[in-house]
Amino acid sequence: MAAGGDHGSPDSYRSPLASRYASPEMCFVFSDRYKFRTWRQLWLWLAEAEQTLGLPITDEQIQEMKSNLENIDFKMAAEEEKRLRHDVMAHVHTFGHCCPKAAGIIHLGATSCYVGDNTDLIILRNALDLLLPKLARVISRLADFAKERASLPTLGFTHFQPAQLTTVGKRCCLWIQDLCMDLQNLKRVRDDLRFRGVKGTTGTQASFLQLFEGDDHKVEQLDKMVTEKAGFKRAFIITGQTYTRKVDIEVLSVLASLGASVHKICTDIRLLANLKEMEEPFEKQQIGSSAMPYKRNPMRSERCCSLARHLMTLVMDPLQTASVQWFERTLDDSANRRICLAEAFLTADTILNTLQNISEGLVVYPKVIERRIRQELPFMATENIIMAMVKAGGSRQDCHEKIRVLSQQAASVVKQEGGDNDLIERIQVDAYFSPIHSQLDHLLDPSSFTGRASQQVQRFLEEEVYPLLKPYESVMKVKAELCL
């Protein structure tokens, strides 16, 4: 049975990233139509530049190519590739079939990587351009969430054990800070992308030097003109047959890092959902379990974690691919890159769409948070109580021993009897502590235990987050809708 299948058929496997999760716009960027249309555009740009620099290419040939950029006979191309065992030459023939007058000058002087690699770089750039505003929107939604809850005390956790208090907004800023680093890295790697350009079979530009009869300047002009037509500021000066596969490492490393950030955020949300302090959106008709109707599973956060793990592992592909590119190139890269580049971007696209949807509907339960604080705060307040007693004339050592005994009794009630923490009640009825009984409410005010959390939130948002989001103001209103 021949390899390949009808990918629109229910009898043929289709990647869930495309069929179930990723956005239509990201799927289109990695589609065959987008790819092969870009090949034709690159052939047109090459012909236009070659004509401008004096090669015998007519206006009629150029116009014929322009008129057929979208006229792609995919069936013919597939048949040609089956016959020739070469995808680029299959599309040269297919393009030439609908451009008979231009057929002889299509791909003039070029090698397969002229269309293959340059198209990949265009796709990487455009895919990054799709991700950047999506990530900015996630940051914006979380920034709104953090600002609104900047002063809401909550129990902090280290080692997932109760620690000092923080605020809900401050905790959210930990998430935002990681995503801001990801946004900066995505922008950097996007701006650092260079075009492969017009380089020939081993990167020496020998074929173009021959076409222009040894004119170095025209060869350099050709490279520059096509690079500018493709919208790049610069091209690699040095290439082998391909652009260095280190570029793929750079791009997928940034995406993998984004995956790590999203995994951490969504894990926190899942843990908070278990504590009943916070939940992701839950639709009115949504079913959490087929057997347990009360369940409210954090399905979206779980999906993000599941896909983020996949995204983090994909960076190993370009690392290994770059390491086995012998001399000017081997074909070890080809099949692998067809999979890992598309999957990385479709996965990143999915987790950003999902995280935006989550961040637009996060639900906080202040009463649950308050109750958990009441359970733990008495123990945390013991040092403040000791200091207040010393100020009232008591002995630190005597007070410490009193607190120690009462704390152990209260802990026994919590752990052995399943009761509430009654340390404060014990202190309130103990005559030894009568000098500070009137101060206990103040000493137990949760806001006095959150330090500068709310001020940190305000400063972080104003100095770091809002300036970073400013270039994306025009796209901030787009909502994230999930079908599944």
Rank of each mutant, 00 (worst) to 15 (best):
A2Q: 15
A2H: 15
H7T: 14
G8H: 15
S9G: 05
D11G: 09
S23R: 11
P24D: 14
P24K: 12
M26T: 06
F30L: 14
S31N: 15
Y34A: 11
F36M: 14
T38M: 06
W43E: 07
L44P: 00
A47I: 01
E48F: 03
Q51W: 03
L55N: 07
E60G: 10
E64F: 13
N68D: 11
N68K: 11
E70P: 11
I72G: 06
A78C: 13
E81G: 00
H86S: 00
D87G: 02
D87F: 00
H93A: 14
H93S: 15
F95A: 07
F95E: 01
G96A: 10
C98I: 12
P100T: 10
A102W: 00
G104P: 12
I106C: 07
L108Y: 10
L108I: 11
T111L: 00
T119I: 07
I122G: 02
I123V: 12
A127V: 06
L128W: 05
L130S: 12
K134D: 15
L135V: 12
L135G: 07
A136R: 12
A136G: 14
V138G: 09
D144Q: 15
D144N: 14
D144I: 14
A146V: 06
R149T: 12
T154G: 04
L155E: 01
L155W: 02
T158V: 01
Q161V: 03
Q164C: 08
T166W: 01
G169T: 03
L174K: 05
L183S: 09
R188S: 09
R188Q: 07
V189I: 10
D191T: 12
V198K: 02
K199L: 03
T201P: 07
T201S: 05
T201L: 00
T204D: 04
F208W: 05
F208L: 14
E213D: 07
E213L: 15
K218I: 06
K218D: 05
T227Y: 11
T227V: 07
A230T: 05
G231R: 08
F232N: 02
R234K: 10
I237Q: 08
I238W: 01
T242S: 07
T244G: 11
K246D: 00
E250G: 13
S253M: 14
V262K: 01
K264A: 09
K264C: 05
C266N: 07
C266L: 12
T267P: 01
T267C: 08
A273S: 12
L275H: 09
E277A: 01
E277V: 04
P281E: 12
M292C: 02
P293H: 03
K295M: 02
R296L: 08
N297W: 04
P298M: 07
E302D: 02
E302H: 00
C305W: 03
L307C: 15
M312E: 04
V315F: 11
M316H: 13
Q320S: 11
A322K: 04
S323H: 03
V324W: 10
V324L: 10
V324D: 08
W326D: 00
N336G: 13
C340T: 13
L341A: 14
L341P: 06
A342E: 06
E343P: 10
A344E: 02
F345P: 02
L352V: 10
I358Y: 04
E360M: 06
G361R: 15
L362F: 12
L362Q: 07
R371E: 00
R371S: 03
I373N: 06
E376C: 04
P378M: 03
A381R: 04
E383D: 03
E383I: 04
M387N: 11
M387L: 10
A388R: 04
Q397D: 11
D398W: 07
C399W: 05
H400F: 02
S407H: 02
S412Q: 12
S412F: 15
V414Y: 04
Q416L: 13
Q416N: 12
G418C: 04
L423I: 08
I427W: 05
H437A: 11
D445T: 13
P446R: 03
P446A: 07
S448E: 14
F449V: 05
Q455W: 06
Q456A: 08
V457W: 01
E463I: 08
Y472D: 09
E473V: 14
M476R: 15
V478G: 14
K479I: 14
A480C: 15
E481S: 15
E481R: 14
